[in-house]
Amino acid sequence: MHGDGPNALARAIGLLGDEWTLLLVRAALDGATRYSQFQAVLPISHAVLSQRLETLVSEGLMDRRQYQEHPPRSEYRLAPRGWSLWPVLIAIWSWERRMASTDPIRTPPMRHRVCGQEMTPSYRCRHCGQPVDARHLHVVWGPSGGWQRTVPGATTRRRSATSGAKVFYPSTMAVLGNRWSAAIVGAAFRGIRRFSDYQDVLGCPPSVLAERLTSLCEHDVLEPVASSDRADWSEYRLTRKGRALFPVIDMVVDWAQRWYVSDEGPVLERMHLVCGAPFRGELVCDQCGVGLHGPDIEVGEPD
């Protein structure tokens, strides 16, 4: 990937900003491999399921293997690229459960099999083991970075929350499910505040930017505050709920840069200000402090 095209992060957000991608990967992590098994656990139409499975195969998240010739039947198993999304899903689960408790579908609890306790993941630096949030990182654009290169070309059309169908990750989809919303939140984490600055760095049409900022404020991810420069100006800052998205955003960055490698170099370069090492985060159990691994996590029943 060279030049002015979408970079690794834009490609990842365009893919993960589809609720069905997340749900199909989650179902596969739970053991679903066949078409009928995916349909049994998800309220998904034949047409959408076929299209999404094809996308996941073409994007390298799943491998397809025919297990029956007459009639032809295939199974879909997670490839390493798809399997490695489990930390992103755990981070999303944690954020939805802690910060989006008013949503109509409650996220179920999770238990850590190693210690046997119901847990909430914590995020820490792999190098020094210290807890981390966005304030603890120094982040600069890498060789393939840049504001407008990081805006996805498009995100797959997702189900409408007003269509009567359940939306399983409603708050997450409000952020990742629209390319401009995802870009705005990313810019907010990089310190962008004013309407004009969002417009300048992202190249977003003013009417679209206004609508997206309003939506993010309605979802309590951003909040308008009076500008320190002019009383009649507003700035849009991350709320506590918005700041808590950091592990999700950071793990998407990490996943994107691992699996969509560019000859140019990374999109972002991150340094942990506490220990001075290049940053990579990891999820740990808040009960026992042990690093989390997919097979060690058990999903409970919804509250």
Score class of each variant (00 low, 15 high):
residue 17 G to F: 06
residue 6 P to C: 03
residue 20 W to V: 08
residue 14 G to D: 01
residue 6 P to Y: 01
residue 54 E to D: 10
residue 23 L to C: 10
residue 48 V to A: 15
residue 38 F to N: 07
residue 32 A to S: 14
residue 43 P to L: 05
residue 49 L to A: 09
residue 17 G to C: 06
residue 9 L to N: 07
residue 38 F to A: 09
residue 53 L to A: 05
residue 21 T to H: 08
residue 4 D to A: 13
residue 33 T to A: 14
residue 22 L to C: 04
residue 4 D to L: 14
residue 25 V to N: 04
residue 53 L to C: 09
residue 35 Y to M: 11
residue 22 L to K: 05
residue 4 D to M: 10
residue 27 A to I: 04
residue 53 L to Y: 03
residue 23 L to R: 15
residue 4 D to N: 08
residue 35 Y to H: 15
residue 30 D to R: 08
residue 3 G to V: 09
residue 50 S to V: 05
residue 38 F to V: 11
residue 17 G to I: 10
residue 13 I to D: 01
residue 48 V to L: 14
residue 52 R to D: 10
residue 22 L to E: 00
residue 11 R to P: 00
residue 8 A to Q: 01
residue 22 L to Y: 03
residue 37 Q to C: 07
residue 37 Q to D: 13
residue 19 E to M: 11
residue 17 G to E: 11
residue 10 A to P: 01
residue 14 G to R: 07
residue 40 A to E: 14
residue 11 R to F: 00
residue 27 A to L: 06
residue 7 N to S: 00
residue 32 A to L: 02
residue 53 L to I: 13
residue 21 T to A: 13
residue 5 G to F: 09
residue 30 D to L: 10
residue 15 L to D: 08
residue 33 T to F: 10
residue 40 A to I: 00
residue 38 F to G: 02
residue 17 G to P: 07
residue 32 A to F: 04
residue 13 I to K: 10
residue 34 R to G: 10
residue 3 G to S: 13
residue 46 H to P: 00
residue 55 T to F: 11
residue 48 V to G: 04
residue 24 L to R: 08
residue 11 R to D: 05
residue 7 N to K: 01
residue 36 S to M: 10
residue 24 L to H: 11
residue 5 G to E: 12
residue 55 T to G: 11
residue 28 A to I: 03
residue 42 L to D: 01
residue 8 A to E: 00
residue 39 Q to V: 05
residue 31 G to M: 02
residue 44 I to E: 06
residue 16 L to R: 06
residue 46 H to W: 10
residue 18 D to M: 11
residue 26 R to A: 15
residue 21 T to S: 12
residue 19 E to F: 08
residue 15 L to N: 04
residue 29 L to R: 02
residue 26 R to D: 09
residue 3 G to R: 11
residue 27 A to Y: 05
residue 31 G to Q: 02
residue 14 G to V: 06
residue 55 T to K: 13
residue 9 L to F: 09
residue 14 G to C: 07
residue 44 I to Q: 03
residue 42 L to R: 03
residue 50 S to I: 05
residue 15 L to A: 12
residue 28 A to S: 13
residue 47 A to Y: 14
residue 12 A to G: 08
residue 34 R to I: 06
residue 16 L to S: 08
residue 34 R to F: 12
residue 33 T to K: 15
residue 39 Q to N: 07
residue 18 D to Q: 14
residue 36 S to T: 14
residue 7 N to I: 02
residue 10 A to I: 03
residue 47 A to Q: 14
residue 6 P to K: 02
residue 24 L to V: 12
residue 16 L to I: 14
residue 45 S to K: 04
residue 41 V to D: 03
residue 35 Y to A: 14
residue 50 S to L: 08
residue 8 A to N: 03
residue 5 G to T: 12
residue 39 Q to T: 09
residue 44 I to A: 03
residue 24 L to D: 06
residue 38 F to R: 14
residue 15 L to V: 13
residue 25 V to E: 04
residue 18 D to V: 13
residue 44 I to P: 02
residue 25 V to P: 04
residue 13 I to P: 00
